[in-house]
């Protein structure tokens, strides 16, 4: 299996005047194609900073980041924009759908920046929406959809461009447990379909759906181990409690 993601001694230091904060201090791991990995850690552990770098939204101040074998750690703004557009699918905690656009148009967004013609965009976006089970809600605006449906639109948007890597940041954080289960079921389905997924979360129950958990603390990898098959959730099952505080 080839590595979709490989980071070596990845570092990110923030400087504000004289104050220097090392948010990520030498993280190394690899994620193979088709893997489903959780990155966990309490707030302040550096997981958001790490995710921003994995998503090419931010550049590391040290180390290497190989995305599909290519070191993208020192790329310029335009090159990174291109990588985000073609190789990464983002899923955010708060969905980040544009309220003025309907579901189909929201899903088309990355394809617009890819320069695809309208016809092709509609087709790919409609396919992605069917894939997440919203094939019939293409003309609905975000405010006409439930939270779970909105997050599925966001997942469709991440899928539409067939990226190498799906990157989800607390994807169930804003959802009730039933909707959260639906979203996790969808992730498991995508995983079975061969997609590579990294889920950043602080929720143990969400992480237990993955094959492997990378635990961060104070900007370093604390533990990186596979999930015990007996503990592993293979179907959306978050128990009876709500997912997010």
């Amino acid at each position: 299996m080839t590595d979709v993601v490989r980071v070596e001694d990845l570092r990110r230091t923030f400087r504000t005047g004289a104050i220097e904060v090392q948010a990520v201090r030498g993280v190394s791991f690899a994620v193979t194609e088709g893997a489903m990995v959780a990155i966990m850690g309490p707030s302040g552990s550096g997981k958001t900073t790490l995710m921003n770098m994995l998503g090419c939204l931010d550049r590391p101040t040290g180390g290497h980041y190989f995305l599909g074998g290519e070191d993208v750690a020192r790329k310029g703004d335009d090159a990174l924009a291109r990588i985000r557009n073609r190789r990464i699918g983002f899923i955010f905690q708060s969905y980040n759908l544009l309220p003025a656009l309907n579901a189909l148009e929201n899903v088309e967004l990355p394809l617009v920046y890819r320069g695809l013609a309208a016809g092709e965009r509609h087709l790919l976006a409609a396919q992605a929406l069917s894939e997440v089970g919203l094939g019939r809600l293409t003309s609905f605006r975000p405010y006409e959809l439930s939270g779970g449906q909105q997050q599925r639109v966001a997942i469709a948007r991440a899928l539409a461009g067939t990226p190498d890597l799906l990157l989800a940041d607390e994807p169930t954080g804003n959802l009730d447990s039933a909707s959260g289960e639906e979203v996790l079921d969808l992730f498991l389905e995508l995983h079975r379909g061969g997609r590579t997924l990294i889920i950043v979360t602080h929720d143990e129950q969400v992480a237990l759906h993955c094959e492997r958990i990378i635990r961060l603390r104070d900007g370093e990898v604390l533990l990186d181990q596979p999930v015990d098959a007996r503990q592993r959730r293979t179907k959306g099952d978050l128990g009876s409690r709500a997912v997010a505080p």
Binding site: D77, D78, R82, R84, N85, N96, L98, L109, Y113, R114
Partner: peptide, 16 residues
């Protein structure tokens, strides 16, 4: 600002 951030995350270049 958030919309601009999202568009950039979706791959919008500075030029776009």
């Amino acid at each position: 600002t958030r919309e601009i951030g999202l568009r950039k995350a979706m791959g919008a270049s500075r030029r776009a």
